[in-house]
Design a protein around this nucleic acid. Structure first.
Lengths: 213, 213
DNA sequence: ATAACAAAACTGGTCAGACCACTTTTGTTA
DNA sequence: TAACAAAAGTGGTCTGACCAGTTTTGTTAT
């Protein structure tokens, strides 16, 4: 209904939710006010409240139970990621460290996937395999993101995304035929569960990207 | 309107959006179908589509221009970082994720050390080897810290310290004879540069710690 | 008094329609 | 051909409605 700031409403609501959680001292695992209460309290429509809540849910910050309510995600605090991001934003001039850490996350994700049958057999790998043929640039980050997501470690995903936000950029060239082959080897290895081959393919890939730029 | 899967609708839509982006080869910076088109195309209500889009927007994966349209994010913008981090202080998902991430750092450090002759030959390993005979509890984190430090990635060290501070708990028992042996195998493997054996020893170690608690 | 159970109230999930504000396209005019 | 105004398109938000679960409440039978 209002919102002086010209910013996105649902982002404003996210902020207000944070304040609300702080002031009312809602701890992880505890219940948040219902959507309808929040509407009235924040003086906005329910859809806006829901957009904010759904965003936070996708981030894993809240948990929702149909008919039950909305709860602050479990687990203690300690501003791990906050400090992390401040570290990143200040830029320690060691881009190499950021890249190395990012690659560590990616390798680990690949390893986890290789070792888990159900993860290996996800349909996403097939569709990615096909996408590679269709030549595009997105595929690189998209593939890696899928790997991290599939690995199931949401903390790692969050860290990784920040690392990417910090360093991912150089990857702006076309995907060469050579690179395509490497990527397909990587995907095939993942699907077969050949961990070492997958890692090797990944390393090849990264090396290949470095030589380009 | 439907959505066979029992999962959250907006998550389903996120998935379908991913597929759509893949199949239609939408590249960063390019435009996505309008919300109203997506409604009809996916056969769902506009609110559901918006909940999915807003989630992706908060993640920084898409960009929205009022009156203009929705676009696949161009790499580089990271409001994600602030929003995420400022809210993340409520804690991320599970302790498991923190531990898994911590272990990833530790394994990676071990690998790096194994592959680098000068790191392998650091005198610290010998002194640690001896210390194991004497010390009792401190040695665990101390050994791991030395590994991370030796690996030379300062960002990783910073992250690791946060993770340890976050999940400091399990490491509170006495070091058994059995554990000492595992640790010595680990150190020996590191010194010899036997990467896989070192990782195996590390995994044994972690498994051993879990069975204790 | 208490246990069991059914009804009511509450809560999230989804949809439809209506406006508003802003941008892009289109068509007309100078 | 350039300039500009109208129209169409698109995101932003609100309201109200209904459904489907969960929690609370109240009544009844033991």
């Amino acid at each position: 209904m209002e919102q002086k700031q010209s910013k996105k409403m649902f982002v404003q609501i996210v902020k207000q939710l944070r304040e609300l959680i702080a002031t009312q001292q809602i701890k992880p695992g505890e219940k948040l006010p219902s959507e309808r209460v929040l509407c009235e309290q924040l003086n906005v429509g329910r859809s806006s409240v829901r957009e904010a809540l759904r965003s936070l849910e996708l981030l894993g910050l809240i948990e929702t139970r149909h008919g039950g309510g909305t709860f602050l995600a479990d687990v203690g605090q300690h501003k791990l990621v906050e400090i992390l991001s401040s570290f990143i934003l200040q830029g320690t001039k060691s881009v190499d460290d950021v890249n190395a850490t990012r690659e560590m996350h990616e390798r680990e994700a690949i390893r986890i996937i290789c070792r888990n049958d159900s993860l290996r057999n996800l349909p996403i790998w097939d569709s990615l395999f096909i996408s590679i043929e269709l030549q595009d640039e997105v595929i690189r980050e998209y593939l890696l993101r899928e790997c991290i997501i599939a690995s199931g470690n949401r903390l790692a995903l969050k860290i990784w995304m920040q690392l990417v936000a910090y360093s991912m950029n150089i990857l702006k060239n076309y995907v060469t035929e050579e690179e395509k082959e490497v990527l397909q080897v990587l995907l095939k290895s993942i699907q077969m569960g050949y961990e070492e081959e997958a890692i090797e393919a990944y390393d090849d890939w990264m090396h290949h990207l470095q030589t380009i730029t």
